[in-house]
Design a binder for these strands. Structure first.
Lengths: 167, 167
DNA sequence: CGGTTTGTTCAATCTAATTTGAACAAAGTA
DNA sequence: TACTTTGTTCAAATTAGATTGAACAAACCG
C-alpha cells in the first residue's frame, strides 16, 4: 500500500535542517516563536513556492501553527503569495530583500512601541507635575525629560537604519 | 507589635508603579524578563541608590530574582554600584546615558549573535558546495550569498547606530 | 570561635507563550 | 444538493522560560 512510502519523503534534508535551525535562532533574537523561524527558513531555502500543506508536512507542525505563522510573516511583509499558479491552493515565497524585512519589522514591532511609549511619557509628565515636594518634582522632571530624549533619539534613528539597510 | 506596621511602608507609590510598568513593557520588547524591567525602572526613578534588599521589599520579588536581575543589568552596563557608602551592603544606581545602554545591549545581545551567525553561514556555504545537482547548487550559493550580505549590513549598521545614539 | 548580615546558586515550582487539533467556514466540484 | 479541499479559529495541552526560596558561601563582628 501507498502508506508504506509515507513519512520520510517529506522530511527535511540536512541542508534544509541547517537553514531552518539557523532561522529559528535568528527569529528568537527578535522575540518571535520557533514556528515563524521554521516557516521562513524553509521558504528561504526552497527553490519553489510552498503551500501551507507543504509546510505542515515537511516541518511536522500543525495546520494551526502554519496558518498563524504565515499570517504573521505576511503582516511583516516577509512572505508573499506567489503569483501565477492557476491552482486553488495558494503558494508562498519569501521576501529576501533586507530593506523590506527590516521595514516590516520596524513598522509592525518597533513603531507601535515608540508611539505608545510617547503616550506613556506624556502621562508620566502629568503625574510628575502633581508631586508637591519641589526637590522631588525637579528630579522627576529631569528623568521624564531623559525618557523623552530617548524616545526622540529612537525616532530619529529608525529612518537612518532603514536607509542604511536598504542596500 | 511592630508587625502591625509592616508591609505597605515598602510598597510602590503610584508614580513609581507607573514608571516600573513602563520599563517592564520596555524590556519585554527587548526580550528580557519582567524582573529586569522592574529593577531598572525602580532604580531609574529613585533619587538615591538602592540596595538589593530595598528592591526585594519594594518590588516584592525574591532575593534570587533581584540578584540575578542585578547581575544581568550590571553585565549590560545599565546599572552600577554606587560609590562612597562606607557601608558593607552595596547600593545600585542606574546608568541613564542612552549611549551606554545601547552600547551594552549591542555588545551583550547583538554582537554575539552576529558572530555566531557568521560561523553558521560559513558552515552552510560548505554544505552547499557538496550538493551535486548544479542548478540546486547555484540556487543555494545565491541564498548563502544573500545571508552573508545581511550579516555584513548588520555589522556596518551597528557602529552608526551607536554613533547616532551617543547624543 | 559562634552569630549575624549580605549576597549567590540552583532545583523545584509557577507562569506566560506557543503549539496543537478538532470544529468550523468558505469555496470549489460533481 | 452532498462531498471535497483549503484554510482559519480558539480552547486545551504543552513547552519554554522566569521566579521562588532554601541551602550555601563569604565577609564582618564580638
Amino acid at each position: 500500500m501507498a502508506g508504506l512510502l509515507d513519512g520520510d519523503q517529506y522530511d527535511l534534508d540536512p541542508l534544509e535542517r541547517q537553514v531552518v535551525s539557523m532561522f529559528v535562532d535568528g527569529v528568537r533574537v527578535l522575540g518571535m516563536p520557533r514556528s515563524i523561524g521554521e516557516i521562513y527558513g524553509l521558504l528561504f531555502i526552497s527553490p519553489t513556492p510552498l503551500s501551507l500543506d507543504d509546510l505542515v508536512q515537511k516541518l511536522h507542525i500543525s495546520k494551526g501553527s502554519a496558518s498563524q505563522g504565515l499570517r504573521t510573516l505576511k503582516s511583516l511583509g516577509a512572505v508573499r503569495e506567489a503569483e501565477g499558479g492557476a491552482e486553488r491552493r495558494t503558494y508562498y515565497e519569501p521576501a529576501i530583500e533586507l530593506k523590506r524585512l527590516v521595514g516590516g519589522f520596524i513598522r509592525e514591532q518597533i513603531r507601535p512601541h515608540l508611539e505608545s511609549g510617547k503616550t506613556k511619557i506624556d502621562r508620566l509628565a502629568s503625574t510628575a507635575q502633581t508631586i508637591s515636594d519641589p526637590e522631588r518634582r525637579k528630579f522627576l522632571g529631569e528623568r521624564v525629560d531623559r525618557l523623552d530624549r530617548w524616545m526622540r533619539s529612537g525616532g530619529r534613528v529608525l529612518p537612518v537604519l532603514q536607509k542604511l539597510l536598504g542596500q
